[in-house]
Design a protein around this nucleic acid. Structure first.
Lengths: 127, 127
DNA sequence: CTCATCGTACGAGAAGCATCGTAGTTTGAC
DNA sequence: GTCAAACTACGATGCTTCTCGTACGATGAG
């Protein structure tokens, strides 16, 4: 059996502000799926999936206000999908890809691929 | 490119009661993920995934009332995850597996596998 | 026809969630 | 110290969702 990737209870932080992340054992599939089921959040995840070192919130432009953006990033963090850390005044977001892959092999890849497929298809007129 | 599996606008029904299903083009990833993000519905999907020919609602025992069960099956049908058809007084449910695989290759398998993985893991005490 | 079974429709209540604006905190630059 | 930038906290609002009970409709068995 594989060993789990670098354990998640990371308290190591450059500054004082620490953000709570669920440990691997606390990540629940239902919560992850719910986090991914919002169009705005799915968009965030897709953007993060294309980077190697994460992005600050401010670089992902979203069709919602700043406070709503904060809300969505919190949902993603609390569900275990992203890791966030402060770096100066910015907050860097990155996918917890290795950890999710360890927990749920193929899930993230499946969702990302599905999102790509859907984008390549004509969107239905109304909904 | 693959051709789509047997088109979805099936009006062929033995009785009179017809149920509306989204066509392939109408199935949205976000809706599917949302449908799968409820514990009760995920349980249903897992049960259906283990059968070949579908199951009547009444054979999947769920920790909710009958009317709530109806609600969850409707969500699953409207999101495009299951197909339902009347058969006598019963209503048979089956996964739209081929169609989902065509739309979103690997997604369903990823989710089902993730559910299995999670079940094999110790559940966290509280949540 | 009568009846039991299976599922639906219709409210209705409680909870959750997405969204926003405004006011605040933290940080680095000057 | 002062200032701008990045993000958060809080409260409010309106929508969706999960849950239920009760009453109803459709089907097949007797």
């Amino acid at each position: 059996m594989a060993t789990s990737p670098a354990s998640a209870a990371s308290a190591a932080s450059s500054g004082t502000r620490v953000l709570l992340h669920p440990t691997l054992a606390e990540i629940r599939l239902e919560r992850v799926l719910h986090a991914l089921s919002d169009p705005v959040r799915l968009r965030v995840v897709r953007a993060l999936a294309e980077t190697r070192d994460g992005l600050p919130c401010s670089l992902i432009d979203l069709p919602v206000s700043k406070s709503t953006t904060t809300h969505h990033f919190r949902v993603l963090r609390q569900s275990g999908v992203v890791r966030q850390q402060y770096r100066g005044t910015a907050k860097i977001n990155e996918l917890r890809r290795d950890e999710l892959d360890w927990l749920f092999p193929g899930l993230l890849a499946g969702v990302l691929e599905a999102a790509r497929q859907q984008e390549a298809r004509p969107a239905p007129a109304v909904r």
